[in-house]
Nucleic acid binder design. Structure first.
Lengths: 219, 219
DNA sequence: GCCGGACCTCAACCGCTGGTAGAGGGTTGA
DNA sequence: TCAACCCTCTACCAGCGGTTGAGGTCCGGC
């Protein structure tokens, strides 16, 4: 066991073999952006473990080969840290980014398989447990055993925002009914298993819904 | 076959259903960058063929779901044009990337309040007048005098697609009801005039709807 | 025949991302 | 003790992906 930790200059040497455009300042920048967090010596020098170097390699590869923005790469890394899959296809859901709604008609295999506890859900959505309880009582959010899915975050967030307009959970019941009916229609066609067709149809019906609302909005 | 070519405003309407952040200036920008080259009328107006619209859809999807820079997308398109396969790392119609997109649903500047004749609407959406008539009879599409709004295109398109799954217009009535209720709720808060708040609320409720459907879809 | 809305071009401007540059200064080791 | 290395911090920057607006044309409805 020699010395498993490298100084920033040594890391540079190592990585430059593979990525010609890496620089010291870039590595420091990536730390500033939170993509790596090397340890420090007493005097403040960075010390990179093999894992840190691996992480940098991952970042640089994703940038070069997949053109991913750092924001997205960071999410991937976060997911890996939390023990999720190695990010072959795409990043997991970003649970706490305030303004991040799902893309309009993406019904693919997203972070919906997320499993959140009650507390996690409240934290992620930034809502009180009281609001969550109320949402549950109206069937707008449903737990599967002890856990909630990723969509619950969106539901809770939106409900909270609507509340500021004076729209309360009980006013939202019709939305639940509508969604149930919509899913019922889809299942009538595709059966009770989730397939590509299920997702395709869901995308279509949601698009229909959106267009209808839009068309009925006052001019 | 009246008019298989769309004006830029019509293209906007069509694409906004799927990509909430597309704008007229963006479409023009994409042309300037050489990603589409719509034909022109004698007077210089752009005329988009179905192929042009498809191309735009490809570009926007690649941007949103794979974060590809335009330069790269352009290369892909070039490759496709030359008859090659769409290049590794990028299935053209791979609609699944997790919810990391910016996607703040935009009910604002819904562009132009398009006014289409019956024939134009059928042409733009690629549907028969019979289907349109049926949609009207169920209140899914409503004419304002002699004219239809841009959202009608989307409604008709989606309805046509759903029909291929055996879902007929009469099955879609509940969607109309749901949309009416939704708009009713919004108007209760904001009054019967269209304001920024109206749009804000519409974006929220549609988001809610989407999340609810998603959450109720079979696993 | 005129008016408003949709469209045109072109040039200027903008916000964000992903860094770089460099001043000013501490640390290390031969 | 000195060169090589490292630190932080502020300032600046270039390119990307558009937006804005001025100034003007086109076209359908009244």
């Amino acid at each position: 066991m020699a010395k498993p930790e490298l100084s920033i200059g040594e890391v540079l040497q190592v990585l430059q073999a593979e990525f010609t455009d890496v620089t010291i300042s870039k590595i420091r920048f990536l730390e500033a952006e939170g993509l790596v967090t090397p340890a420090r010596t007493a005097s403040g020098y960075r010390k990179f473990s093999a894992g840190d170097v691996e992480r940098l390699r991952y970042v640089l590869t994703a940038q070069r080969d997949q053109y991913l923005p750092l924001k997205v790469i960071k999410e991937h890394l976060g997911a890996i840290d939390r023990g999720l899959r190695p990010a072959a296809g795409g990043p997991p859901i970003a649970p706490s980014t305030p303004a991040a709604g799902p893309a309009a008609d993406d019904f693919g295999a997203t972070g919906t398989d997320l499993r959140l506890t009650r507390a996690e859900l409240c934290a992620a959505a930034g809502v009180s447990t009281a609001l969550l309880a109320e949402l549950e009582s109206h069937g707008l959010v449903v737990a599967d055993g002890k856990h909630y899915g990723g969509d619950a975050i969106v539901v809770a967030q939106v409900a909270a925002e609507l509340a500021t307009y004076g729209i309360e959970p009980r006013h939202l019941r019709p939305f639940r009914t509508a969604a149930d009916r919509e899913v019922g229609l889809i299942e009538q066609v595709t059966g009770p298993r989730r397939t590509d067709q299920t997702q395709e149809l869901a995308a279509l019906t949601v698009r229909l819904h959106t267009a209808l609302v839009r068309s009925r909005l006052p001019r």
